[in-house]
């Protein structure tokens, strides 16, 4: 090669270039910390809101803990497959919506946004991001007590909370790949194959109730789920990939993952969650409930700011007119940082 040197492009595996790998990967400790910090910050904000609504009122409120929040989210994760079943959406939609709901609550608290509302929005958004769109009216009309507005109002917030990272790499796709691989192996008992696949898929669906996707790669989850269904097939596949080398490291890594799927891959006890939901009614952020003082105050504040901005803009224009240039001389950087070129 002559001329200038080529940029050093070390090829990274495709998965490592994904937003899922770059933005949504945590250790179990980081995950716990993220949730507890989020919860503490939310409680502080809501406590203030209560106080501004009615001084002294926050002292009797029993706020939710991070664990309790998570429990409630999990209950609504369970509603997503039901909802998708009504519409016969493909598994891609269901799995994507579940990932979105979990990601949403790494950025938001249930005390601001109740998962029963967010759930409807994530499913609708997932139909679009996975390329199975249906008209909003058709969607909302089949869900009891839901207007199109209920679904759309949160769409922007959900998209923002996801950081606009819409692509999800799913474990069920990785399992499909494993299954195709396995069929090319020699000396495996063929009659067990489809039973093992079905069993593994059941475990994959269970894994969606857990934090597995935040901690492990889709292929790791797929292999663990296959290993739950058929340890023999999983290790036969591992041997075919690792040659004579030892696969102990991978097997050891799979154990906590399998344990997680088996122990946490089910819906929480409804009674326990009902208790959480009851308390949530009392500790919801009053700024998000129309009619409360805190809500009215927030709306008034927003209007005041908008008015201020309008006045500032009018003032700038007036000045420009005085300067003899009705189109405004070169505005300062400050002025056009705003998004006030909107044609609302």
């Amino acid at each position: 090669m002559n001329g200038e040197s080529l940029p050093q492009t070390s090829r990274i595996p495709l998965y490592e270039g994904s937003t899922q790998f770059r933005h949504w990967r945590f250790s179990p400790e980081q995950l716990a910390e993220t949730r507890s910090l989020l919860n503490a910050a939310a409680v502080a904000v809501i406590r203030d809101a209560f106080e501004s609504d009615q001084p002294g009122s926050s002292s009797q409120v029993s706020f939710l803990s991070a664990e309790e929040e998570n429990l409630l989210v999990k209950l609504y994760l369970g509603k997503i497959p039901q909802l998708c079943g009504i519409f016969r959406f493909p598994e891609e939609v269901e799995a994507t919506a579940m990932s979105y709901l979990k990601r949403f609550y790494l950025k938001n608290t249930v005390m601001d946004w109740h998962p029963k509302n967010v759930m409807l929005t994530v499913v609708f958004l997932a139909t679009k991001t996975t390329n199975y769109p249906i008209p909003l009216d058709a969607y909302a009309s089949r869900i009891p007590k839901t207007t199109p507005g209920d679904v759309l109002d949160l769409e922007f917030l959900v998209a923002q909370s996801l950081g606009f990272d819409f692509t999800i790499w799913h474990a069920h796709r990785a399992l499909w790949g494993l299954w195709l691989d396995i069929q090319t192996l020699s000396d495996i008992p063929l009659d067990d194959l489809s039973k093992a696949y079905d069993g593994a898929l059941t475990s994959i669906r269970a894994s969606r109730f857990t934090d597995a996707e935040f901690i492990y790669t889709p292929s790791q989850i797929a292999l663990a789920c296959l290993s739950i269904a058929s340890p023999a097939l999983a290790s036969a596949w591992l041997r075919s990939k690792s040659g004579q080398g030892s696969d102990d490291a991978i097997s050891a890594m799979l154990e906590p993952l399998k344990a997680m799927v088996l122990s946490q891959g089910s819906l929480p006890d409804v009674e326990a969650v009902r208790e959480v939901d009851r308390r949530l009614r009392l500790c919801k952020n009053p700024e998000k409930i129309p009619g409360t003082n805190a809500y009215n105050k927030k709306v008034a504040e927003k209007q005041r700011k908008a008015e201020e901005k309008r006045l500032r803009k009018a003032e700038l224009q007036r000045k420009a007119m005085e300067d003899g240039d009705p189109f405004g001389s070169t505005l300062t950087a400050q002025a056009d940082l705003d998004d006030d070129d909107d044609d609302e």
């Binding site: 609708f124 958004l125 679009k128 769109p133 008209p135 909003l136 679904v151 759309l152 922007f156």
Partner: peptide, 8 residues
């Protein structure tokens, strides 16, 4: 229908 397909 909210965020449109081409933007998404």
């Amino acid at each position: 229908d909210g965020l449109d397909m081409s933007a998404i």
